[in-house]
Write a protein that binds this DNA or RNA. Structure first.
Lengths: 211, 211
DNA sequence: ATGCAAAATTGCAATGGATGAAGATATATC
DNA sequence: GATATATCTTCATCCATTGCAATTTTGCAT
């Protein structure tokens, strides 16, 4: 899987990165809708057709690192610690992801904020972002369910993940909408997570009772 | 606003309904992607261009009744009963919406299920659905905040709404994914709502303590 | 080195959604 | 009726996206 990558692989990665860089730069300079595939391809000196062998759509470029993010979250879920409850595990994954999103290694906070603004301003990107968010939640819910055999049923896992992500996301949106800073928004998301985790945790005692 | 609607208004409504009916019928018969705007327009005997003066995109037709649904939910929020807590109010709105979605008056359960299947099978429609869902949540969160002055701050309202909707939605998706029936899915959504409401309600006691 | 198979890239053409503009037509208002 | 206005049609255009066939590049084995 991680042998010395051959020339073919290296070239592919280089092209992919070049497409990402050119795309994000152009989106930032001219706007998303105003940037054509032809321009992106020209900037990287490949055929426009080639763009679509790397990304399924213009929107996809913006979320180039999504898969890596999800993989990290799933890793956390998979690394359940002894004695850790399902909710605690979920909370840890949430914390990890928030930290990664706001202090992540990938790119500067400026570029992250720029991307947020871009997504915010383009309906097609908002739609894609939400789609990815839901796909992610499904995968996390399934992973959580599988990491905690006998402790949760699939619907409970889904409810927990959905509640947590839903709360964090809408809280962040609301905070952001009201003009809050990057840090304040992060804090709002964190608070929403804490609230939801407490709520979910307080339910566990009820689980054993007859219903 | 509700004067005797003139001929112009009536014709507009008639055209709009005809476009909706023809669209849904064709989507069902041939599939979404396989149906072109030209065909829809031809079926209603209007110019293709006219379609876009009624709907901003092909996807929009499928969600023709969304605005009415949201309006109902907001009505419930606005009709807070004496002594009703914010969370109880939210729970009531959620119950109302679930009932409406599953036993609603609009169209038959079959057509509702058909629509679900359609949305499920077309990525573009899923994306639009999620987009609308989030817009709705924002509006509901704001309404809830305004209906309960002093009881919640905006971030808490957002967290509550986000948690509730997120839990219900992902639970329903998960249930549906596993091949559950319409009724079972409804039950799963209801259970997720109950779980989340209990969790949120149990937090209220903590609110007054110093933090 | 050389040949061959697989993978990647390219050019080309076609589809179809979406938008803009100008003119024709129908409806409302007086 | 006459005029203002909303609506619809026609026509032109842009561009994302896809399929296909031809061509080039790489991996690998001789």
């Amino acid at each position: 899987m991680s042998d010395p990558p051959g020339l073919r692989e290296r070239k592919k990665i280089r092209t992919r990165n070049a497409l990402i860089d050119a795309s994000l730069r152009l989106f930032d300079e001219k706007g998303f809708d105003e940037t054509t595939i032809a321009e992106i391809a020209a900037a990287v000196d490949v055929s426009p057709r080639t763009f679509f062998s790397y990304f399924t759509s213009k929107e996809d470029v913006v979320f180039y690192d999504n898969e890596a993010r999800v993989a990290e979250a799933l890793d956390v879920i998979a690394s359940r610690r002894p004695g850790e409850t399902a909710i605690d595990l979920l909370a840890r994954a949430a914390r990890h992801t928030v930290d990664r999103d706001f202090h992540g290694p990938e790119r500067s906070p400026e570029s992250a904020a720029r991307r947020e603004r871009l997504i915010e301003s383009v309906p097609a990107l908002q739609a894609r972002a939400l789609r990815l968010l839901f796909d992610t939640q499904r995968r996390v819910a399934r992973a959580l369910y599988e990491a905690c055999p006998g402790e949760l049923d699939p619907v409970e896992a889904a409810a927990a993940v959905g509640a947590l992500v839903g709360a964090a996301r809408l809280a962040a949106m609301t905070s952001h909408d009201s003009g809050a800073s990057w840090e304040e928004t992060r804090a709002a998301a964190q608070r929403a997570i804490d609230i939801t985790i407490s709520g979910l945790a307080s339910l566990r005692s009820r689980e054993d009772e007859p219903g």
